[in-house]
Amino acid sequence: MRGFIHPGNVNTFVAPRALASGDGFIVGSDFAVATGPAAQGGEVEGLQIGVVDLPKATGANTDVTQGTKLYWDDANRRVTKSSAGNVLIGTARRDAATADTSYRVRLTGQIS
C-alpha cells in the first residue's frame, strides 16, 4: 500500500529518562513501554499496543476486575485505577487483588 510505513505497535522515541526494559514512559502525548534499556536522551523502542504487566499502585482499594480502565501515574511510574492527574493507557486484562504488585494491561496506543 502506498504510504504505509509499519503497524505502529512499536515505535522509536527519545528516552525521557534512563529506562530499563519494561519501564513505562510518556513522551509528549504518547505512552509506551521500553522494549530494551536506554540512556536518557538515547533512542528507545517503545511498545504502544499490546498486553504487558506493569507495576501497580499499592495500598487499599487497588483491586480491579478485567476491563477496568487503567491510568499511568508518571510521577510515581506505576499504573493506577485513579484518573485524577493521570493518563488513560488501557484496560485490565485480568482481575488483580490489592496485594498484587502488577496489573496486566492491554495498551490502547493512545492516551487522554
Rank of each mutant, 00 (worst) to 15 (best):
M1E: 15
R2T: 15
F4P: 03
F4V: 09
H6V: 08
P7K: 11
P7A: 13
P7D: 15
G8S: 12
N11C: 12
F13N: 03
F13K: 05
F13I: 05
A15M: 10
A15C: 12
P16N: 06
P16L: 07
P16G: 02
R17P: 06
L19S: 04
A20L: 08
A20C: 06
A20R: 11
D23K: 01
D23I: 06
G24N: 01
G24V: 01
G24F: 00
G24M: 00
G24Q: 03
F25T: 01
F25L: 10
I26S: 11
I26G: 09
V27N: 09
D30H: 15
D30I: 08
F31G: 02
A32K: 00
V33C: 04
A34Q: 09
T35E: 13
T35H: 10
G36E: 14
P37K: 10
A38E: 01
A38P: 00
A38K: 01
A38F: 00
A39H: 11
A39V: 11
G41H: 05
G41N: 05
G41W: 07
G41I: 01
G42E: 15
G42K: 11
G42R: 12
G42F: 12
E43M: 11
E43I: 10
E45P: 04
G46L: 00
L47C: 02
Q48A: 10
I49C: 11
I49V: 14
V51K: 10
V51A: 13
D53K: 07
L54K: 00
K56S: 04
K56C: 02
T58K: 10
G59L: 02
G59K: 00
N61F: 10
N61I: 08
T62M: 14
T62D: 13
D63A: 11
V64K: 08
G67E: 07
T68F: 09
K69A: 14
L70M: 13
L70V: 13
Y71D: 04
Y71Q: 08
W72E: 00
D73K: 05
D73N: 09
D73L: 07
A75Q: 08
R77A: 15
R77F: 10
R78F: 05
R78D: 08
R78N: 13
V79A: 02
V79I: 05
V79N: 02
S82E: 15
S83P: 08
S83R: 09
A84M: 06
N86K: 05
V87M: 07
I89A: 03
G90E: 02
G90I: 00
A92N: 02
R94H: 15
D95K: 08
D95R: 06
A96C: 09
A97G: 03
A97P: 04
T98C: 06
T98D: 13
A99M: 05
A99Y: 08
A99K: 11
D100R: 04
D100A: 00
D100F: 05
T101W: 09
Y103S: 02
R104T: 10
V105H: 03
R106W: 01
R106N: 05
R106A: 07
L107N: 01
T108L: 13
G109R: 00
Q110T: 09
I111A: 05
S112R: 10
